[in-house]
Simulated scan of single mutants.
Amino acid sequence: MTNLLLLFICLTIGVLLRRLKSFSEDAPTVLNTIIIYVCLPAITLLNTTEIHFSSNLFLPILMPYLIYAGAFVFFNLIAPLINIDSNTKGALILTAGISSISFVGFPIFEVLFGKEGLQTGILMSQAGSFVVCGTLGIFTASYYSSADFSMKAVVLNIFKFPPFLAFCVAIILNISNWHFPLWSQQLLDKIGNPFGFLALLSIGLQINFQKKQLDLNALFYGLLYKLILAPLIIFLVYIIILGEYTPLGKLCVIGATLGSMNTATIVAITYKLNPTLAIQMVSISIPLSLINVAIWYGLMLYF
Results as ranks from 00 to 15, higher is better:
A147P: 01
L94D: 06
V111C: 02
S283D: 08
G128L: 08
W296E: 10
A91H: 03
L232A: 15
H179Q: 15
N87L: 06
M151W: 15
F220W: 11
L66T: 12
Y65W: 15
T95L: 10
L66P: 03
L16V: 15
L224E: 06
L173Y: 12
Q206I: 01
Q126D: 07
F159S: 13
F53A: 14
G255C: 09
P163R: 07
L200V: 03
F23C: 13
D85Q: 11
S86W: 00
I36Q: 03
K89S: 10
A42S: 11
G192T: 00
P231E: 13
P64D: 08
F109V: 05
S24V: 00
I228M: 14
N174H: 10
S102L: 10
M151P: 07
G90R: 08
A153E: 15
I233E: 06
S145P: 06
L136Y: 10
Y238Q: 09
P162Q: 05
T88V: 10
L188G: 08
G222D: 07
K212A: 15
Q126E: 13
Q126F: 07
L112F: 10
H52C: 04
P60Q: 11
D26F: 00
S99E: 06
N3I: 01
M124A: 14
F23E: 07
I228D: 06
G97D: 05
A218T: 08
G117F: 05
Y143M: 13
L288E: 09
A199Y: 02
I93P: 04
F164H: 14
F139D: 04
A79Y: 01
I295W: 06
I203H: 03
I61H: 09
G222H: 02
L229D: 04
P28W: 00
M281W: 03
T48R: 01
P181A: 10
P107N: 07
F197H: 01
N177D: 15
A170R: 12
L46F: 03
I228C: 14
I138H: 02
V282L: 06
Y65N: 10
I93Y: 09
G14F: 04
L173M: 15
I61P: 04
Y245S: 13
F209D: 09
Y68S: 08
F109E: 02
F109W: 01
L198T: 00
R18K: 15
V267M: 04
T12P: 06
P194M: 05
P107T: 07
A278I: 07
L165W: 00
V73G: 02
Y245T: 14
Y271E: 06
D215V: 06
Y302S: 14
I239T: 11
G114E: 00
T135S: 15
L223Q: 11
S125I: 00
F74S: 04
N208L: 10
E25F: 05
Q213L: 09
R19V: 05
F106V: 07
V73N: 01
L273S: 07
I51K: 13
A69K: 05
T257G: 05
K272Y: 00
G117N: 05
L236P: 00
F53E: 09
T120W: 03
N32L: 00
K211Y: 13
G117L: 04
C252Q: 08
C168R: 09
F74V: 02
P64C: 09
